[in-house]
Nucleic acid binder design. Structure first.
Lengths: 236, 236
DNA sequence: CGTCCTTTTGAAGAGAGTCAAACCCCGTGG
DNA sequence: CCACGGGGTTTGACTCTCTTCAAAAGGACG
């Protein structure tokens, strides 16, 4: 279900996402396009925000992936959450954004400051985005707490696919997935060795095609049922 | 002992917590006390909010513990986050609160509606509370993703202690802990059998005294270091 | 005294981690 | 054109944490 009735709003995925979340008007889109017109670039592996630092303003990811990361004193690493194109770092509504964890550029990034004090519709898009952030974090907790290795990986891939789909960056179960198996392991709380084995099993089942940086979930519906994902919330 | 300089603001722990977070004025406290004066009661094991439902208004927990829970189709259960006295369910700032997961009363509860549209200081307390909620959720992800069983349990107990301390409900590592080992297991992503064994080891090390519903962490500093907890954010 | 819930204990099995090495792809440079 | 290097992926053998299944033992309460 791409956009049947509505015309495609813009060529910029990040803006398409906010449009989808808030039903923006053309003025809102123009404002966002203006902001996106002079993007700031960040190289992969650079820190966007150090833990405990505060962010000047919320930041919109235009291209590339970022992640909230926690590294423990002994070197263990956990990717707490991913930030995909169209999603926002430091989106805390009225209060000052203060990072609760380090934010890392997973790939090269294009970003811009998030326009503030704007229309009601745009604010609604931001608010919806915030609500989604929370639900993604909760889903991550359930994933790590109660799913086994195979389920964790499929569940994460399904979630990523559905998140990318909002910005028009995924279709028919296909999407770009720039994480290495090692980073995937740090996301789902496993070792890269075990991730590798489990991914191969999913391949052999025909559930998953993953070559280079592109992933194809051959039957998203089946996959999402197999991991007991709750139905998507009805719109509104 | 407790508040050296400031006079103890109120006898109600939930209000003490918000006071600590926002440096309230007496008017704010009076407003909260008024709201807390006709509490609503909820029995243990009742659902406060069903998954996907929206909440009429944010709800302040006056007494007792609640939890965000996800139950999977096959019966697996994960407690996503705990809500302790003085903490808030459905605290989403300006946007409509919509529950992302079921909220369950862990013990009998006393609650009240959270006063809205109030002073700047009270709003700041709410905002800080929201920020803390997010950091607790992130800590839960790290706990489940990268800590082993013993670490998960100690880390959770340390966090709970420090959260209760804000409301004046913990001192010298001692606090009331109403969860059964089974519920603790559902929180830290383990089985109750294994939780039991690991708790016994912590007892034998002398790290933990847990009898009935009261827990004593004999050396909080040592415990928090042993699980690699980041230093608490400096105030402000 | 019996019932229900929670904690405790035991024995055996499975899932994931560890360690180590080989393999692959790809860009670099001789 | 091919050797070199380096990240990422793959494989194998072994270990160990945590789960599973079962049952006993405590405790609170009507």
């Amino acid at each position: 279900m791409t956009d049947a009735g509505r015309p495609r709003s813009t060529a910029i995925p990040a803006i398409r996402r906010l449009d989808a979340l808030g039903e923006l008007e053309s003025g809102d889109r123009a404002l966002l396009e203006l902001a996106a017109d002079r993007p700031a670039h960040v190289r992969a592996h650079r820190e966007l925000v150090a833990a405990g630092q505060s962010l000047a303003a919320p930041m919109l990811i235009l291209e590339g992936w970022a992640a909230h990361v926690r590294i423990m004193p002994d070197g263990r690493r956990q990717i707490i959450s991913l930030v995909l194109p169209g999603e926002i770092v430091g989106n805390r509504g009225p209060d000052r954004p203060r990072a609760t964890a380090t934010v890392l550029a997973v790939t090269n990034l294009a970003t811009c400051r998030l326009p503030q004090h704007t229309s009601a519709r745009l604010d609604r898009a931001y608010a919806t985005s915030r609500t989604l952030d929370e639900s993604y974090l909760m889903a991550q907790v359930v994933r790590l707490g109660r799913l086994d290795a195979a389920e964790r990986i499929i569940d994460l891939l399904v979630e990523v696919y559905e998140r990318l789909e909002i910005a028009g960056l995924g279709e028919e179960g296909r999407f770009v997935f720039p994480l290495t198996q090692e980073m995937l392991a740090d996301t789902v709380g496993l070792t890269s060795v075990h991730v590798n084995r489990v991914v191969q099993q999913a391949r052999q089942r025909g559930e998953l095609v993953w070559t280079g940086r592109s992933v194809h979930l051959t039957d998203v519906g089946q996959s999402r049922r197999s991991v007991g994902r709750p139905d998507r919330l009805a719109g509104g």
